[in-house]
């Protein structure tokens, strides 16, 4: 049974992934598709990422002692800081800080935000199950995975906002079309990277079905499969309908994106459990 610290660890990891991926993804999306008006949204999720980073580090201290005292136990926190966990925390805080500062500076701050977003995503490649394997190819696969899913997550809210604004419907069609073209390339690569990482981490079919880690991975894959179905509906049905001027298409797209968000939240939750409490098959 999970104890309080493990539940708190999953919740914090969930907030961390949601904050970082949404903030970095929304920033990258606004750059790629020239969308404006997402600054507050992006800063909000970056702040969520910073809060979750600090809370997660503190909770890791508590997990080492088994009581709340560990959250401020300098010996435990110092021990964590000296490991790759500390490196990841430093990179993440610096990255999200730069992302926010860059956003506040406007156009001139884009480079800062770009570096910050890169550092924040890179921080996930410095600690955890995949970096421990010491394989450059695996780390590259993970980084690509993070960049691709952050763009996927990042496009959802701006696209939904555009679709719901009748005066910006043409922008919604433009963004939807361009994202569809990019997704046609990165989604197959994303699947390939996911299968490769899954195979390297789990190793066998018996481990996939016979361990907690493998079973959680199956749950994640099932939800990702449903996500692909929704994305295909957006690309092949709702966006073309919108471009033809179907008045109901924007509403359908908006509803589809809302469902997509809920599935993404579930996938992130599953990932939080995979990376915080479940051990890899031996």
């Amino acid at each position: 049974m999970l104890d309080l610290w493990e539940l708190a660890s999953i919740a914090t990891r969930f907030a961390l992934y949601l904050g970082v991926l949404t903030a970095v993804g929304t920033f990258l999306t606004t750059l790629l598709f020239q969308i404006t008006g997402c600054r507050h949204f992006t800063v909000g999720f970056a702040l969520l990422g910073i809060a979750a980073t600090v809370m997660g580090f503190s909770l890791s201290g508590a997990a080492l002692t088994g009581d709340a005292g560990g959250m401020v136990d300098f010996e435990m926190l110092g021990l964590l800081w000296s490991t790759s966990v500390g490196t990841a925390v430093a990179l993440r805080l610096a990255g999200l800080g730069l992302l926010i500062v860059g956003l506040l500076l406007g156009r001139v701050g884009r480079i800062l935000s770009m570096i910050g977003g890169g550092l924040a995503l890179w921080s996930f490649v410095t600690v955890g199950h995949i970096p421990d394997r010491g394989s450059l190819l695996l780390s590259i696969a993970l980084l690509f995975h993070l960049v691709a899913i952050s763009i996927w997550i990042g496009v959802l809210t701006p696209l939904r906002s555009l679709a719901l604004d009748p005066s910006r419907l043409s922008d919604a069609v433009r963004v939807g079309h361009r994202f569809g073209k990019i997704a046609a390339v990165f989604v197959p690569l994303l699947i390939l990277a996911g299968v490769y990482m899954g195979y390297e981490l789990v190793g066998s079919l018996s481990s996939l079905v016979g361990t907690g880690y493998g079973q959680a991975l199956i749950i994640k894959v099932l939800f990702v499969a449903s996500l692909l179905t929704l994305a295909a509906a957006n690309k092949l049905r709702f966006i073309p309908q919108m471009s033809r001027g179907d008045p109901a298409a924007a509403g359908h797209l908006s509803k589809s994106i809302s469902i997509e968000w809920s599935v993404i939240v579930t996938v992130i939750l599953t990932t939080a459990a995979l990376t915080s409490i479940l051990t890899l098959p031996s």
Binding site: T211, G212, L269, A273
Partner: peptide, 18 residues
């Protein structure tokens, strides 16, 4: 419903983490 399904599934799988 989606969140509930995921939570129950994860709760079950975590119990056999070795």
């Amino acid at each position: 419903h989606i969140m509930f399904t995921a939570m129950v599934s994860l709760w079950a799988t975590s119990a056999i983490a070795h």
